[in-house]
């Protein structure tokens, strides 16, 4: 059984059909690319997959569970994590705390145990700290763990967002333009990290990216959307030579 099965997904904003008849099947551990010109509906698809928007039609099945229209918080528990195109960190909190919030549903103790500083507080906080630091280390952020998230440079903020998403122990990770605003060196490093994360955590990753070479090199399968509809699907090679894709990108830019 596939990890994610999306069928006939659609949503309209007023008169605008932002996404229409969108189908997608992602296998466990797959690296999947979602590309298309600006305004094609890519972020909207992410927003439907994570419950930020409720689709007007269609189904989203994650690992056998129908999560269509569920609240974001429940979908996170079901196993989808994401980053945002315009970074959304907990700016006034430390880097470490950002990841600890991500661990919220992985390590539990009650509010009362926290206020009364019961033994479970210390025990679970230790576990949480260890897990969070291990994640930060993967992204080279362990040295800045105590800093406020908003004080990090842009590239580090993007990484922190990924670390926080991974903290939720997802089955599927959605990355919305993770390389945006990065220089070629940082982009290459990011590609390495993405591959490493997939291998280490054994999760599937669906990513939106404008940088075509980044997607082509990294992703095993690519789906191309334009005006809310799928216009091409296949391996990097297949997609690259598809006339519709070439037209959409040339027309779009």
């Amino acid at each position: 059984m596939a990890l994610l099965e999306v069928s006939n997904l659609g949503i309209a904003f007023g008169g605008l059909q932002a996404v229409d008849k969108f189908d997608l099947t992602i296998e466990k551990g797959q690296l999947f690319g979602l590309i298309g010109p600006n305004g094609a509906g890519k972020t909207t698809i992410f927003n439907m997959l994570t419950g930020v928007y409720k689709p007007n039609e269609g189904d989203i099945i994650l690992d056998g569970q129908n999560i269509t229209g569920m609240q974001p918080q429940k979908i996170s528990k079901a196993g989808i994590a994401r980053t945002f195109q315009n970074i959304r960190l907990f700016n006034d909190m430390s880097v470490l705390d950002n990841v600890r919030v991500g661990l919220h549903n992985q390590v539990h103790y009650s509010t009362v145990a926290g206020v009364l500083r019961l033994p479970s507080f210390y025990e679970k906080e230790n576990i949480m700290r260890g897990k969070a630091m291990a994640l930060l280390k993967i992204f080279g952020l362990d040295g800045v763990a105590k800093q406020k998230a908003s004080n990090l440079p842009y590239g580090m903020q993007r990484k922190l967002e990924i670390a926080r998403a991974l903290a939720t122990n997802p089955k599927l990770l959605l990355l919305d333009e993770p390389a945006a605003g990065m220089n070629p060196n940082e982009t290459a490093e990011l590609a390495e990290t993405v591959r490493f994360v997939r291998d280490k955590f054994g999760i599937a990753i669906l990513l939106i990216e404008h940088d075509m070479s980044f997607v082509m090199e990294l992703c095993e399968k690519i789906v191309v959307v334009d005006y809310g509809r799928i216009i091409a699907f296949g391996t990097a090679q297949e997609v690259r030579n598809n006339p519709k894709v070439i037209a959409a990108y040339l027309g779009g830019e």
Binding site: Q73, L89, D92, M93, H104
Partner: peptide
């Protein structure tokens, strides 16, 4: 504590808090 961090995460960014599974 875990609870306090959840509360502050809502203050800082509600959408992100929901996205990591916080019951806002």
């Amino acid at each position: 504590s875990r609870t306090g961090r959840a509360i502050m995460s809502i203050r800082d960014n509600r959408i992100a808090a929901e996205s990591v599974g916080i019951n806002v």
